[in-house]
Simulated assay, not measured.
Amino acid sequence: MSVLPAAAAAGASISPVALFLQADIVVKTVMIGLLAASIWTWSIIIGHVLRMRRLGGANERFEQDFWKAEDIDTYYTAHRASELPSARVFLAGVQEWRRSTKGPAVDRTGTRARLASIMGSAADAEMDRLSDKLNILATTGAVAPFVGLFGTVWGIMRAFTDIAAQENSSLAVVAPGIAEALFATALGLFAAIPAVIAYNRLTHGLNRLEARLHRFADAFHATLSRELEAE
């Protein structure tokens, strides 16, 4: 008798689909949860990367055009509906400037303090908006390995139960349960590793953008301060 059909059957029995179908309901639930977490993680990663690339170029062009603009009021009117982070910091600064300087007597010290506070808050609000859902990546990276480990422990317990029930400790009896258990661990790592790497990289990019926003806010604040001194 040829051993090739038996080898082929053994190879098919340890395919991911076969391992899932052979697992009990607890391990299946763990596997489905980890796969769902992985899909959700990748959707967040891809969406965030595309958004940051789009915003990065547009934000840089906005700042370059702003420093070339000759009239702040005209530039404000043209960009008052913009959703770019730098634009929102700029809009918040102009709005506070108008409120603080519309009276006959201008409190220069108070105006400077309010401008710094308002633009700093606008920059922080933009970072909160852009960092939305990144906490999901951190949670997935921290929790997924332990969820996979739970599936592994449960699968190994089931394998030992089968040994006791069949009174047979041969590899043929033990291997399927252990394979299912280890597959759960692999799925946990499959979900966790990209989440951790992406969280670190995306957080680094957000930190750079935050520093850029605050530099823009400081430079615009200095411009408005010079306008106060000229009045």
Rank of each mutant, 00 (worst) to 15 (best):
P5K: 04
L50H: 01
W42G: 13
L202E: 02
G151C: 01
S170H: 09
S100R: 10
F90Q: 06
A36P: 01
A6M: 12
L213H: 06
S117Q: 14
R80P: 04
T41K: 02
A87E: 01
W97L: 11
M1H: 15
A10G: 08
I32E: 10
P145F: 15
R215M: 13
A175T: 10
A195Q: 01
D65E: 12
A186G: 12
A159I: 06
M127D: 10
I32S: 05
D107P: 14
V174E: 06
M157G: 06
A195P: 02
S43V: 12
S2C: 09
A36T: 09
L130S: 02
R88E: 11
T109W: 07
R53M: 14
V89I: 11
S86Y: 12
L4S: 03
R51Q: 15
L35N: 13
T223R: 10
D162G: 00
K133V: 04
M1K: 14
S15Q: 04
P104F: 09
Q64K: 15
R53L: 12
V89G: 03
L19N: 01
M119N: 04
A92K: 15
G110P: 03
A186N: 10
S225K: 11
I45E: 03
T77Q: 14
V143C: 03
R208Q: 14
P145I: 07
L91N: 12
A159L: 04
Y75C: 07
L34I: 06
I163G: 07
V94L: 10
I25T: 13
L171P: 05
